[in-house]
Design a binder for these strands. Structure first.
Lengths: 384, 384
DNA sequence: CGAATTAGGTAGACCCTCGAACTAAAACGA
DNA sequence: TCGTTTTAGTTCGAGGGTCTACCTAATTCG
């Protein structure tokens, strides 16, 4: 029973609504916003005026005034409205992206990661400093920082467990916040990526979709009913540890037959090695498949089938509008996609399948840092 | 982007919030409501005054004024506040329940069902008339009717497909509304049952839980993030048609190896028959298990294991606070429960399991009609 | 150059919540 | 007995929200 609704909250909500509508329809007129947001003309007027006042939105002359009547003035997110910073924390490297409030990427760079949390935080801060300096223009304040971490995160920004990083039970949000004087938001990488898809990617305009990303593991971000779904403790979306194959391959989590033991990058490479193909990474696997190697083609088809079966569970349970494949899975997408589609056709119920789209993330490996940008944007718009 | 929030909506929300707090904590004082709802003292005062004015709530003298200071006056939902009607539509029988706004059951009865939709509707209307007359007191108006149907229902109250009833593509909500001059709400039976658990049953106070009910099929109602989750088309929770056993038993949906082909009442009885035990219904199965029949004990344990495996998927994906077993599953709960718990322990991730409760619905076979009551209550409180 | 047309702003009504001051009703204490 | 203290609940005004209805601005058309 937490969320108390008052006028100020309504205003923030409406402001965010107008802002997002403007993001998705740049250079539209105020009267279009009325239709897009469902708000009243007067309310829209007030909100737009406030956004202009705040310097987040600017009015521009519309180029073609061919119709009768007063010409509309185009609205757009001001380029100088501010800068958002997104990052992805992984053991090997930290990827950082800066973007405008409209979601246009300004800078991308990476900096070494670390399994030592203090070192990683320092590296992240230095990287962000560099990225911001590089993208800094006149009067373009940093509005927030968002970080996606491959970890179970609870609602308060505490890191519960991050097997790949070897971290557990750390108040990481607070640690990071201490390094910056702008708001810092930290969340699970898959959830961040799902938010990125919703705001900037293949999930634009969708209220119900799932975003499956394979990296060192297989994660899943749920976007349900128009908002990210976190679950009771913030652990929802543990797609990788579905027990898919009774008595199957051993998974990093200690169990057997998890999806992750078949469909994560390390698992795919391990299976390839067992079949006599030693490969460095998924790009090499994709190359081999593109070259027509039947072993790789067969393996990837198998992987696609397992992913598709697991996805059918997800689809039957949550009835999403779309399934978005992201992360490293994008690299091998062409080779797993047919098997995924077949498995969905076979195992997902027809009425649920009818409205289902399977899409590939436009961000590839940058989905998580873009998720950080998305977290920062949401945080900025929700702030008082 | 539909839901427009204005002052009136806030007031409705707050009214519902206070009402539900009062339902869950009868005879509490107004000052307790402040804590329970998180609303301001003044707002609470205004809302309570309105509820009293509307005749939904009454003030009572508190029996024990032992503390210093002005004694508190107890508040309670007025018994005369109104009557709610809930029903469950099945091919064989229609079960009807009437209850007060506080959720106390007044009348229960059943009336014959039908596969002919017009006949079924007529039977339902007659049954409701009887039930209401029986529970009618002085000045107790019927506030709404809610009906749970074993069908895929879309958001607009159209019935898409009801295999067990043999219905498809019928505007059932409109048909029923034409029979009554109070608001009628129709929804999928599992979703209705989940709402009943949330308001009156084992899900009280929980924001994230799933409610699995076995009848002629196996359905699942999702309650996520403090509200019922319907999915993009309203089809979420198709738990019964998860493809659990590759190449397994044939399911009514035409596929093979669906959970429903193992764990629904007909499936359990069919499997028992294959093992030489011809039984009429699950009650007979439970009797045999209670008598120590090893065939039944083994079979039910198997069923529990499969249910538990499927539940582990659900748990890993949605991280609920509780899994509530309802419907006919309640009848055999003692015999499937251990296997469910074992399967969850084996296949659900530890951090997710830590906060998970497995509960049995207190309603048994009346979960769906109580869901109708819950639908009617929510509808009444949401009305302008 | 006025009428028509369209974009956008404004004023006032009416709601909401909230903080602070106020009233109500009891026990306590001298 | 009667003020003081304590606790419960109400009222009032400030501040802010949306919405209806009207108003102004800027253009084309005839």
């Amino acid at each position: 029973m937490r969320p108390i609704v008052n006028s100020a909250a309504i205003r923030r909500l409406n402001r965010a609504r107008v802002f997002h509508a403007l993001r998705e329809h740049p250079h539209c007129a105020q009267r279009d916003l009325v239709g897009l947001t469902g708000l009243d003309k007067a309310t829209t007027s007030a909100v737009v005026a406030q956004l202009v006042e705040e310097g987040l939105v600017e009015r521009r002359e519309v180029p073609r005034p061919r119709r009768v009547g007063r010409p509309e003035t185009a609205l757009a997110i001001a380029p100088s409205a501010g800068l958002l910073v997104g990052a992805r924390l992984e053991p090997g490297t930290i990827r950082i992206v800066t973007a405008t409030l409209a979601g246009t990427v300004i800078e991308q760079l990476q900096t070494p990661g670390s399994r030592d949390i203090a070192t990683a935080i320092r590296s992240l801060r230095d990287g962000i400093d560099r990225a911001v300096r590089a993208g800094e223009g006149p009067e373009r304040p940093v509005r927030g920082v968002g970080v996606g971490v491959p970890a179970l995160m609870d609602r308060d920004g505490r890191l519960e467990l991050a097997p790949n990083l070897g971290w557990r039970d750390s108040p990481i949000a607070a640690l990071l916040q201490a390094e910056f004087d702008v708001p810092v938001h930290v969340d699970n990488d898959s959830k961040a990526a799902a938010l990125a898809e919703r705001l900037f990617g293949a999930g634009r305009g969708l209220d119900d979709f799932v975003c499956v990303a394979g990296h060192s593991g297989v994660g899943c971000g749920l976007f349900l009913g128009g908002r990210p779904y976190r679950g009771a403790e913030g652990f929802a979306g543990e797609f990788g540890h579905i027990a898919l194959v009774p008595g199957g391959r051993t998974c990093g989590c200690g169990k057997r037959g998890c999806l992750e033991a078949y469909a994560s990058e390390p698992a795919i490479l391990a299976q390839a090695a067992e079949r006599g193909r030693t490969l460095d990474d998924l790009w090499a696997a994709a190359d081999a498949a593109r070259a027509g190697d039947p072993v790789l083609l067969g393996l990837l088809e198998e992987v696609g089938g397992r992913l598709g079966l697991a996805l059918s569970y997800l689809v039957n349970l949550t009835n999403p509008q779309a399934v978005i494949l992201g992360g490293n899975l994008c690299v091998v997408a062409p080779f797993i996609r047919p098997a995924i589609d077949r498995a969905l056709a076979e195992h997902a119920l027809e009425p649920l399948r009818r409205s289902l789209r399977v899409a590939i993330s436009p961000f590839g490996a940058d989905a998580v840092p873009m998720g950080g940008v998305a977290l920062a944007l949401e945080g900025f718009l929700a702030a008082p």
